[in-house]
Design a protein around this nucleic acid. Structure first.
Lengths: 208, 208
DNA sequence: CACAATAATGACACTAAGTGCCATTATCCG
DNA sequence: CGGATAATGGCACTTAGTGTCATTATTGTG
């Protein structure tokens, strides 16, 4: 593993860190421990990550990237509701991904008791915001740095965050695991209501 | 200064920290330096704040608190636009507060080059979110922990954050300082468009 | 005013997070 | 194979942050 194949190594470490954080708390987990559990040296750990907390970021990032991969295929002539419906059904095939999702859900559910997890979570929301800016810009033929686009991306990302937090907490703390259809509904509805620009409905390329 | 009068001490330290961060960068500023500049011992500094970065939080908190103080006086039968209009005009009298605002604006404008400032800034947004949840809950006679209220608070807080970032950056980096009326307009408009519940218009107490 | 109770601070030693530096090892490409 | 380069590990070192205890300031009460 070297040259450029380091990408896989990072998320491995993130899984170790997440399990340790969930089991013993962030404060109760040392950097040395994370390194040891992940099978790398201390020095390499600190080359991979700037802080102990940021070790779990690749897990959040993976969720963002999954979302991004899907959203890039969102046809211009389709509503959010329909898009989420047909997309979330078929895609979850990878066992590893399910395992990662579980870790993420548990991490999010602990945000209250573990304020140290807030920073990586907010960083992830920020990434989602950038991502949504790209999607919105594409659909409406605007620039991703346009003020209106940024505003809309921020409100939508915030709504998605609240949905994630609500569902994760309900699942972990009260055992209320929603069906895929229910989650999709909630997410789509929240996104639609949160948007300050109408990118959720079919858009017609204005050019040519 | 003791017993419970510590509140003033914290923001004094925050001002010192902010100036140092702006002058030499976060990485270039040590905890010892902050303590020395603020005239307190290292040990007391770490009792006041958990991390170096969080030293500036009281400055952000002060802005939130100002806003809170105003919003609590928002009459039920008034629109946001009108409320912001009559409120932001008269209130800015304190010289210290103006000085603090300047520091905050400069800090926000540096978010791109100083990612270490993101955490306290996000924490502040989180505080604003809680604050708005309270305001919205009051106006609509709902619980601040109600899902719909949380969602709306999150989108509104996100919009306010984008406005703050946009205005601060424009002011510091491009010298575009808007008038109070312009800022108010932008803020009110963003809040209104971001809200998923209609708390911006006059609400009628439903009881009795 | 004096005195007890308690909160705030400082001094100092200590743990752990994170970096700099250099030697070693793995990988890629010709 | 062999040289260039990227990744890693080991170790010393800096600095962020904590635990402990003695000292000082503050408040309330008789």
């Amino acid at each position: 593993m070297s040259r450029t194949i380091r990408d896989g190594a990072h998320i491995e470490v993130a899984r170790s860190a997440a399990r340790l954080f969930l089991e013993k708390g962030v404060a109760g987990t040392s950097g040395d421990e994370i390194a040891e559990t992940a099978g790398i040296s201390k020095r390499t750990l600190w080359r991979y990550f700037r802080t102990k907390e940021s070790c779990i970021e690749p897990l959040f990032a993976r969720m963002s990237q999954n979302l991004a991969a899907k959203l890039q295929k969102w046809p211009l002539d389709m509503t959010v509701e329909r898009f989420l419906e047909i997309n979330y059904d078929m895609s979850k095939i990878d066992a590893q991904e399910i395992e990662d999702s579980k870790l993420v859900v548990h991490l999010i559910a602990r945000l209250d008791e573990e304020p140290a997890l807030l920073e990586p979570w907010f960083m992830s929301t920020r990434a989602t915001e950038d991502l949504m800016a790209g999607v919105i810009a594409t659909r409406l033929e605007l620039s991703p740095s346009d003020f209106e686009v940024r505003l809309c991306a921020a409100t939508v990302a915030a709504a998605m965050r609240v949905i994630d937090e609500t569902i994760s907490r309900a699942a972990v703390k009260y055992g209320q695991v929603p069906t895929l259809a229910e989650s999709n509904d909630r997410l789509a509805q929240a996104i639609r209501r949160a948007s300050t620009l109408s990118f959720c409905d079919p858009v017609t390329p204005r050019g040519r």
